[in-house]
Design a protein around this nucleic acid. Structure first.
Lengths: 133, 133
DNA sequence: GGACTTTAGTTGACGACGCAACGATCATCA
DNA sequence: TGATGATCGTTGCGTCGTCAACTAAAGTCC
C-alpha cells in the first residue's frame, strides 16, 4: 500500500541519479529556481515550497553551487537573505534531467493508466494533501 | 503529485516517531517479524521484504536489539545466518504503535474517501507496483 | 533610539541509509 | 575432496537529511 509509493519515488530517484547525477531533491529545487522570475528564489522560500527543512535546503543549495548548477546572490533589500540563482549549466542539467524524469513518469503512468484514471488519481492526491489535524 | 505521498509518509513517520519512538521502518520490520512463524525471520528475508538494503536491515535490527524489541538468534541449519526474533517488549511496542499508525491511516483515508474510492486507489497502487522495465 | 522578538541562513553533532569490501559459510562440480 | 563461486551478514566510509544552537539582520513597541 504505502510501499508502492516508496518504491516509485526510490526508483524515479535512482533513475535520475544514474542518468544525470542529481537526486530528486536537487531536481525539484533546480526546477523551482528555474521557473521563478529572473531564475532566482530565496532559500527560505525554497524551504517552504518543498518538504526540506531550512538547513536541508541550505546544504542542498551549497552542493548545487559547488557543482556550478546554482549561484548564491545576496539579497539587496534584506541583508540576511540569499537568492539561489540558476546558472546556464544548471539550466542545461535541468533540461536533460527533465527528459529522463518525464520519460520515467510517462512510462509508469501514461502507459499504465487511462486519462480518466489519471484524473481520478490526481483528485485523490489533492484530497490527501488536505491536512486532517 | 509525488509530493503528496512524500508528505504523507513523512507525517505518518513523524507521528509514530513522536508517539512511540520508532520510525516507520522499525514498525515495518517489527510487524514482519511478529507475523512470521515462531515470531522470527531471517535478516536477508527482511531485506527482500522491504525496500531496505541488507546492510540497512542489519543496522536497523541491531538498533532494535539494543532497544530490546528484537533479539538475534543464530540459524542452526545455515551458520552464516541470523534470525531476528521478536521479544515481549517488541510485541508490546508493536501493539501500541499499531494503534497510532492505524489511527493515522484511518484519519487520512477512511474519513476522506468512500469505500469505492479506497478500492480504486488500491487497484491503482497494485498496478503501479508492476515493474515497467 | 533602545530593548525584545522574530526571521534568514549557517554550522556542529548526529541518525539512517547505501555501496563496496570483507570474512565466513554454503553449494557445486570436476 | 578440494577449488570455485554464490550468499549471509557486518563494517568503514560517504551522502543526505534533521535538530539545536548560533549570528546577523529585520521588525515592533515603548
Amino acid at each position: 500500500m504505502l510501499s508502492a509509493h516508496a518504491r516509485l519515488v526510490r526508483d524515479l530517484d535512482a533513475e535520475l541519479q544514474q542518468a544525470e547525477g542529481i537526486t530528486l531533491s536537487s531536481y525539484e529545487v533546480l526546477m523551482l529556481v528555474a521557473e521563478a522570475p529572473d531564475g532566482r528564489r530565496r532559500i527560505s522560500d525554497l524551504s517552504s515550497a518543498t518538504l526540506l527543512s531550512l538547513s536541508g535546503v541550505s546544504r542542498l543549495v551549497d552542493r548545487l553551487v559547488r557543482e556550478d548548477l546554482l549561484a548564491k546572490e545576496r539579497c539587496d533589500d534584506d541583508r540576511r537573505g540569499w537568492f539561489a540563482q540558476i546558472t546556464p549549466a544548471g539550466r542545461a542539467r535541468l533540461e536533460s534531467a527533465r527528459g529522463v524524469h518525464r520519460a520515467g513518469v510517462r512510462r509508469r503512468f501514461l502507459t499504465a493508466f487511462s486519462a480518466e484514471e489519471l484524473r481520478q488519481m490526481d483528485g485523490f492526491w489533492t484530497r490527501l494533501e488536505q491536512p486532517t489535524g
